[in-house]
Design a protein around this nucleic acid. Sequence first.
DNA 1: TCGTTCTATGTAGGAAAGCTTCACCCATCG
DNA 2: CGATGGGTGAAGCTTTCCTACATAGAACGA
Lengths: 292, 292
Amino acid sequence: MTSPSVGATERGAGVLVRIETLAPSLRESERKIADYVLGHPADMVHLSITELADRTDTSEATVIRFSRKLGYPGYSALKIALALDLHSTTASLPDEIAPDDDISAIKSKIIEASIGSLSDTAQLLSDDAVGRAVDALVVARRIEVYGVGNSAATAHDAYALLMQIGLPIVAVLDPHLQVMSAVQLRPGDVALAISVSGSTRDTVEALRTARDAGATCICLTRHARSPITRVAHISLLAAARPRTVGGHELLGRVAQLAVIDVLAAACALRRQDASLQALERGRKAISASKRY
Amino acid sequence: MTSPSVGATERGAGVLVRIETLAPSLRESERKIADYVLGHPADMVHLSITELADRTDTSEATVIRFSRKLGYPGYSALKIALALDLHSTTASLPDEIAPDDDISAIKSKIIEASIGSLSDTAQLLSDDAVGRAVDALVVARRIEVYGVGNSAATAHDAYALLMQIGLPIVAVLDPHLQVMSAVQLRPGDVALAISVSGSTRDTVEALRTARDAGATCICLTRHARSPITRVAHISLLAAARPRTVGGHELLGRVAQLAVIDVLAAACALRRQDASLQALERGRKAISASKRY
DNA sequence: TCGTTCTATGTAGGAAAGCTTCACCCATCG
DNA sequence: CGATGGGTGAAGCTTTCCTACATAGAACGA
C-alpha cells in the first residue's frame, strides 16, 4: 500500500511541481489528467470533476485517485490548492533551447531553469524528511554514499561536503563495491543513494542491500514514487526543470547540490562545535600548503 | 467614476477589494460574512458553505446571496477566485544561518542563497568567454578537466556531461597525474581547470603545464583576478554567495554546475547532429540495461 | 496454452456540498 | 392597525463529489 519512505513531499508543496515528480509513477489515464492540468492549470480550477473527466477521456474515479496520489483528500482540495498556487505560476514553461539561440539566450535559459528547479525544490523537499535524515546522519557510525553515472559526481560532492564537517562518510562509486560495502553496514549506519531517475538498477540494488543489512537508507531523487523511494526509509526530493536541446531532455543537477548543502548545514548546526572544529582543521590544512 | 453604468468593479478585480467596495450595501448577515472573509481569507478557501454559514451565524442561503452580490455564480466560484487572489507572501531572508534556525529556515536560506548565486552568475559570466570556450571545445582533439578537493566533484560532473554530448573529454583528479597528463597536450587541445578560490596550487600548476604544452586553457572560478585567471586564456566566472554557519563561510557550487550546463548546451547546439546522436546512444545504452 | 492473480480503469449508487424556494419575521408606511 | 416589502433561515432539491464494486486487460505460473 504505502512505501516505507514517509513524508516524501512537503505538505503545502506546489501542485504542478508535485505532478512532475510523480509523473513516472502515473498510469495512462492519470497521465492524461496530469497533462491536462499541466497544460491548462488556469482552466482546471473552474472545472467540475465530471467536466475534467470528460475532457481527459477518463472517469471521475480516476480523477479522485489522481488527487489522492498527489496528497490531497479529494478533488475540491486539489482545485483549491492549485488555485492558491497559481498566482505565482511563472509556469515551468518549456525551456526549449532553439537551434538559433545565441550564447546569451542559452545562458539565460539555463540559469532560469536552474533557478526554477531550486524554487520547486524549496516546495518539494520535506522538512520532516530532512530532519530525520539529519537525525540519522549525526549519530551514524559509518555513512556511505552511492551513485553511478551522472550521479557519481553528485555522490562525490556529497562526500566532499559532509566529510568536511566531520561526518564519517565515504563515497562508493563502483556498483560492485557498492553492494559489497553495503552488506557490511549495521544498524545505526547510514546509506545515502543518489539517482535522479530513481530507477537506476545498480543504485537501487545497493540501497536494498544496505537496508537488508539494517542500515538507515536515504535516497536523493527527482521522482517521488520510484523504485528507489520504495526501498529508502527517507526520501529527499530535488526538482529539475527539464530543458530540451533538439528534442533531448537534459536535467540539471543544481537542485541536488542544494539539497546536499541543506543536509550539511543542518548537520553542522546540530553537531555545533564538533563540526566547526572539523571545518577549521580542514581550512588550516588547505591554506597552509595548498594555496598560493 | 461613479457612473450609473453596470459592472462598477472590474471583472478580474481582487475579491477582497470587491468586498470592501460593496461593504456599505451589505446587510447585517452579509456583513458578518464579509468580516469573516476579510479576517480569515486563507481559512475561508478551505471551508464548505455550511461551515462558513455556521461560523458566521448565518445561513447557507445568505452565503450564496453574498457570493452573487460580489458577481460570482455561486460559492464555489467565489472560493476559487479568492484562492487565485491570495498571495503566499515570501519575505527575503538574511543569509546567515543562526544556531536556532529550524530545518525549514535552513532550507529557505540555502536555496535563496543558491538562487542569488545563479542570478549573480548570469551577470558575471561573459558571453564572449563562453563563446570562445565553445569554439575551442568543439574542435579539440582532446579535452582534459582538472580539479582537486571540492572541485574534483565539479570536474567529475563536467566530464560526465560533456562526454555525453560526444566530446573527447577526460577528468583527471589526481594532482600528479594532472601535470603528467597536461604535459602531453598539444596545440588545439583544451585544458579546463576548476578551482573556486582560483588559488589552488595543484590546479594552477596543472593548467600552467597545459599552457606551456600549447593547449588552450580555460578556467572556471569564483575570483576574476586570481592566480588561475592569470594562467588561463579564457576565464569563466561563477558566483557564489557565501553563507556562514557559526562564522564559517560555505560556498555553494551550484553556479559552477550551471556554467557547465551552459557550456554543454552551447557545444551541443554547435555540433548539432553529432551531439544529438551521442546523446541518443547514451540514452539507449542506459535505458536498455541499467534501469528498472 | 490456459487458468490465476493482480492492476488499472470505469460504472453506478450513495453522501455531501451547493443551491432554490418559500414562509416567517420585523420594520415601515398608508 | 393592517398592508407592504425586504431580509433571513429552514427545508428540500440539484449538482458535485466520492465510494464500492465490477470488468477488462496485463503479468505470471503451471
